[in-house]
Design a protein around this nucleic acid. Sequence first.
DNA 1: TGCTCGATTACCT
DNA 2: GGTAATCGAGCAA
Length: 277
Amino acid sequence: MVLTDALTPIVAAGYALTVGDLDGLARLPREFFDRPATEVAPDLLGCILWHASAAGLVAARLVEVEAYRGAIDPASHSFRGRTARNAVMFGPPGHAYVYFSYGMHYCVNLVCEPAGRAEAVLIRAGAVVAGAGLAGRRRYGLPDTTGSPDGVSTTDGSSQAAPPRNGARSRDLDLARGPGRLCQALGIDRSLDGADVCAPAGPLGISPPGAMDPPVATAAVTIATGPRVGISRAADRPWRYWLAGDGHVSVYRPSKPRDARPKPVSGRAAEDGTMHE
DNA sequence: TGCTCGATTACCT
DNA sequence: GGTAATCGAGCAA
C-alpha cells in the first residue's frame, strides 16, 4: 500500500508548537502524540529527532517508523500489561520509551495516546542532519581526526562521519539506519527512558520537518506502509511506515525463528511490497 | 531459580 | 545468506 502526498504539515494540521527555553528549537506539542500510534507514526516521517548531550547535538530526520498498539497488538511490549521495563508506555504521551534489545542495542519509542493506553511509535531509521561527526564517532568508535567540533555540523547530510573500522562501509546512509544504529548515533540509552520530548528544557526533543535541515520537498514525498520488521506475532499488520525510495530506510527482514523449527510449508512469506536491498 | 527468546547488528563464508 | 554476540524480560517449574 502506498499513500501519495501524505506528509502532513504539522502546523497546517493545527498543532501549536512549543519552543524550547534553552535551545530555541520548536518542538511537537503533547497533543500531537495524544492519538492512536497508527495516526502519529506517518506524521512523524520527516520530523527531526535530536539529542543534546554534553558531547554535542545530534539530530536525525525520521524516515522509518513502526506503530505498536498496546493491548490490541500482540507484538507490542505492553500487550501483556505493565512491567518495570515498559512502565513508561503506560504513562502520558510525548515521552520516550527506551529498551535494551538483544543484549547490545537500544531502541527508542515515542509514547502515544493518553496514559493507560500504552501505544507507541518505534523509531526505526533516520538521516543524520546535524552532528554527523559526533554520530560517526559514536557509531564507529574512532577518535575525531576530522578536526571538526562536536555539535551542529553541516545540514546537507554530506558531511564527515568518521569512517568505519574496516573502511569498507563508510556510508553516511548507515549512520542511523536501523533502530539500534539510530540510538547509538544519537547517544540514546536507558538513561533517557521516560524523557519528555515535549518539555521545553529536555535534552531529547522532536521538531517539525525543516527545523534543522533544508526543507524537503514534502509535496512530492511518498509514504509507504508494510508489515513490521522482525516480529513473530501480528506480523501481518501493515503498521510500518517509511519514505519510499529514501536510502536511509532499513532493510526489511521478516521474523526469523531462533531454533531449527521446520518452516511452514504453506509459506506466506514476502508479500509485503517493502524495500529490499 | 533456571531457561528461552527477542521490535538487532556486524562479520564471515 | 548464515550466524555469533550478549543480556534482560518474561515465563515455567
